[in-house]
Simulated assay, not measured.
Amino acid sequence: MNNKVITFGEIMLRLATPGYLRFTQTEEYTATFGGGEANVAVSLANYGIPVEFVTRLPENDIAKACVMDLRKFGVGTTHILFGGERMGIYFLETGAVARGSKVIYDRAHSAISEIGRGMVDWEKVFDGASWFHWTGITPALSQGAAEACLEAIQMARKMGLTVSCDLNYRKNLWKYGKKAAEVMPALVDGCDVILGNEEDAEKVFGIKPEGFDATATAGEVNAAEFESVCKQLKARFPRAQKIVITLRGSVNANHNTWGGVLYDGEKLYVSSRYDITHIVDRVGGGDAFMGGLIYGLLTYTGEDQRALEYAVAASCLKHTIYGDFNRVTVEEVEKLMQGDTSGRVAR
């Protein structure tokens, strides 16, 4: 079975304060790499799925280190374009208890933000692939990035690939004169699988569950409330075969509940709910979910409940791992799915 996946987007240098230090008190930063679509690619490579990550990077040693890092995980880098002046950076301050985490972006004029239609040979990229994944972060970067993304989606459709997207609304990124609501519908219209959370659906398409406030969950999120969101998204984007919503209940910065729902147009599947009491790093949690979902849908054909459970369990484990990438195996995820939450030493 051909299950090669292509992901497209920006990867950045991540500079994080050590531990729980604030930006105003740290004297050093821990350097790693991360970005939505690259995070998904790493997850899939860890699960043994052939995957290629497409982006544009400058020709310098930081970008070289980034490509080496991706290759270390088994992610294909053959179709990365080189050019432009700089790589995007994001700074992370990890929150604790009542103080939330903070992200500062420094990604203006990054190499990929200056990409445009016609720069990627998508027909060549998609040759031999069965799945294309993108997120709402890419079209938020620039008009050119949005056009390249649309071009990719159209070619993927033409070549018969499954297309998935994570809506991933980032209000701090839409700076080039277009709103998400203007750009995203044409892109999402070409998708077979749509992932989002309650805020993404509302901020981008004005779709929301009645009476729900994401800032006041107290750790409890009622899955049934989101059936209406799924049905509204399905009505808006009839091509989509599966609408998936992640459900995060926030007790505080270190303690979340985590689950998800999947709607196939007829039935709403509801996942197990995890109580994550000591979060190490929640950045990349949604990408870990998406990577798990793609793996589950490719591997557990026709078993939507199992695919959803795999995605939630994979993401639950990501909350225990520092950095953007989810460094877990299929065996570890399936062990958690089967109910082993003991955390006992394996020896």
Rank of each mutant, 00 (worst) to 15 (best):
I243D: 09
V345S: 07
R71F: 00
T246V: 05
V54D: 12
C165Q: 01
A288P: 14
A140V: 06
G211A: 12
E85K: 15
E114N: 08
N172R: 15
Y295P: 08
A152C: 07
P139N: 08
R14V: 09
V54A: 10
R99M: 08
E309F: 02
G88M: 12
G339M: 07
W134S: 06
R86T: 14
A307G: 04
E331R: 04
V261N: 13
S250H: 13
K64N: 12
Y47K: 04
S228I: 12
Q241R: 15
S101V: 06
R170S: 02
N168D: 10
L57K: 00
L297I: 08
G260P: 10
D189G: 00
I62Y: 15
A201G: 01
M12K: 09
K175Q: 13
G259V: 07
A96W: 12
E59I: 07
K208G: 10
L336R: 12
M87W: 05
Y90E: 11
Y105H: 03
H109A: 00
L167M: 15
L150T: 02
G339N: 10
H133F: 02
N39H: 05
S130R: 08
D166L: 05
A180N: 03
S142W: 00
F53E: 12
P185I: 06
N172K: 15
V75A: 07
A41I: 11
M290V: 14
E227L: 14
R56W: 06
G259A: 05
E93T: 05
I153P: 03
G100H: 11
M68Q: 08
R170P: 01
A313K: 00
P139Y: 10
S315Y: 00
F289Y: 06
E198T: 14
T217F: 13
L173T: 10
H319D: 05
N256V: 05
W122V: 07
L336I: 13
S315F: 00
